[in-house]
Design a protein around this nucleic acid. Sequence first.
DNA 1: AAAATTGTTGACTGATTGGTCAAATATATC
DNA 2: GATATATTTGACCAATCAGTCAACAATTTT
Lengths: 129, 129
Amino acid sequence: MGRKKGFQQAEILVIISNVFIEYGFEGTSLDDLVKATGLLRGSLYSAFGSKRGMFSAALAENIKQGKDSETTINLVIIAMMELTAKDKAVKKLVEYWYEENSFLNIAELLGEAILKRSHLSGGNLNNGK
Amino acid sequence: MGRKKGFQQAEILVIISNVFIEYGFEGTSLDDLVKATGLLRGSLYSAFGSKRGMFSAALAENIKQGKDSETTINLVIIAMMELTAKDKAVKKLVEYWYEENSFLNIAELLGEAILKRSHLSGGNLNNGK
DNA sequence: AAAATTGTTGACTGATTGGTCAAATATATC
DNA sequence: GATATATTTGACCAATCAGTCAACAATTTT
């Protein structure tokens, strides 16, 4: 009943994930998300409720639908750095992800992802490998 | 010559470091720094030039003066997540730190610091140990 | 086709952002 | 003590921030 959505939520969440990964949570503005998705603020807010809701939905989509792990781990790191301390929903998602992957060396996985993200140049950046 | 500084730069940088570690770079506002240091905006700007300058000075103080490593590594992580891609001065500081510590397993060190920061609760968070 | 329901639109808002600057104040040199 | 230099003060600013909402459009139900 009512009007149909003019977009596929899953596709939008892929775009949103990439924006948050590029700029971080606090570093991402709603204008960034509006421009990247092609949607308007009102549509984003009616779909996700808040900026945190947008991040949370993106993280949940990646974790629960088993998306590619590099995207997921980058979102997890951003969540840990900027959100798990204040946002219970995000914290629970990260804890769920943590348990599902407890067979891995998570510390090393996180650390390597950060190193990759940081675009360090210079000499020999091949410590963990 | 001229008026004396009313504060010790090294002491202020300890406070600034703690604020950035608590809120992240983008998550820290100038009001946060003003309140924590007890200085006014103008003093902070005349001492460090910009918000990035404040972070950069805090990071440099920690790296070069060999401050306690937990503070340093947390600043390094924030730098990698939010600044190395855009700020050359910060990038060089991190690269210097990286080289000075290349005998360590940096990936694991970073990962464990993030896990500690993230305040995850729940079951068994003792993977890397 | 009227009523009810849901989605879209984009202008608007109050709050907050990083940053500036002229005036005032304090110190050093002459 | 006059001049030069350095620091402090806090009011001020344009830009940007996350979030809202009433009007409009599309779809289903009755």
